[in-house]
Amino acid sequence: MKAVYIVIPAYDEEKLIGQVVQDVAKEGFTSIIVVDDGSSDTTSQAAQSAGAIVIRHRINRGKGAATRTGIEAAVQLGADIVVTMDGDGQHSPKDIHAVIQPIMENKYEVVLGSRQISKGAMPSHKIVHNKIANTITLLYSGIRVQDSQSGFRAYSRHACTLLDTTSDSYEYESEIIRLIAAHKLSYVEAPISTLYTDYSTSKLHKQDISNGIRTVYKMLWKALS
């Protein structure tokens, strides 16, 4: 049986992180690493109380940086498969089974969770944001994917050791796709459901406005420098 570790980067997620950890555990995955990315609230305590292994960044470094820290910890702990998912409750832990299956069967090295991008299934501003991000990711990596910004992904141990990311923020997701191309890793997209609660939508909206332009700028910067 392969050891599956779930990595959840979290920043000021005290309201939901405990519930997310418990929901993941209910699906039978008890090796859960929460990376508290310098939260100013009680995210660490909430995650630990719920049964997660907690690693804490002294200062906030961004989702990409926290995810990589979690992946490194999982590899150190002997993970065969690492699943990354968001800590705001937008990802359904039930989908973990689907994203790890292709790696369990040794068919692929990376599985990219892919949200349904259509009206009704996703807020309209998110659809526009995704289409722009997908186009830039295509130029950046040469790979066309349906959802370049999904944080719900699974990696084999081999892939984890190769994906030497340097992006700290939301451009991390696109950098992963570029590295998949650079290292010629086999990958597949798996459909996942997304729960757009008031809580997760408010966080997503904040990310879009404040970080969208910065993310594009950083991706272009990395492509050109």
Binding site: I53, I55, R56, R58, R61, A65, T69, E72, D168
Partner: peptide, 20 residues
Amino acid sequence: ERIEQDITRTVRRESLDQFQ
């Protein structure tokens, strides 16, 4: 950008060392 990456590496190293 290079300083940002150095900070991240330092923070990560410290976090993982504490964890270990």
